[in-house]
Amino acid sequence: MNALELIGLRAGYGSIEVLHGVSLVVPAATVVALLGPNGAGKSTLLKVASGTIATTDGCLHVGGVHVNGADAAALAQAGVCRIPEGRGIFPNLTVAENLRMWTGVGDLRPAEVAERTFGRFPRLGERRAQLAGTLSGGEQQMLAMSRSLVVDPAVLLLDEISMGLAPIIVAELYELVGTLAQQGIAILLVEQFAQTALAVADSAVILSQGRVTRTGTPAEVEEHLAAAYLGGAA
């Protein structure tokens, strides 16, 4: 069954339409890489899929259920987890309090949430009483990413998770993405570094100017990448 399915989806900000009819499926236990030039609408697509932006036309299905119009909180409860690009933390809460916020979805107890997170990112354990806004850029990214570890989602939407992370951590994270997919999670991955994403992806989609221009295996899609980026940059 497809964990996430978009059919002819249109959406945008106010009167400006960004997605002009996008169709896309992400089956369970699969990593799909969503690629395309800056400004193609990738982040917008993830926002729509997580309920942050409403769809204006088309269908959004999560776990086979039609969920158009459900708000972000409801979709989160239904198992959709989006890690937003660049700012996935509450800056005026401490690290520990941020983790407490993650307990709103799923059924882990606060102590278990902390344990899992600090097991994966020991650095955060040393900083648990620090205000998250004063963490280093990479530490903030780790904290944001920790939510995907603890809410046990069905659909995971990752927006540029490697941004600002040391290579050694990026490698670890992508290993983690693979593990999560094996556990049955459907993962849609946006990444500027196409190679990194394609290495873990089962299939890939190119989005350009709000439309899907190509879908296929990573190898097939990679061939068309250069053209998409150069052509779509305007």
Binding site: P37, N38, G86, E160, Q192, F193, A226
Partner: peptide, 11 residues
């Protein structure tokens, strides 16, 4: 300070 993060390979 990390001018390249968030840029595509080409950029």
């Amino acid at each position: 300070d990390e001018p390249g993060s968030g840029l595509s390979t080409h950029e």
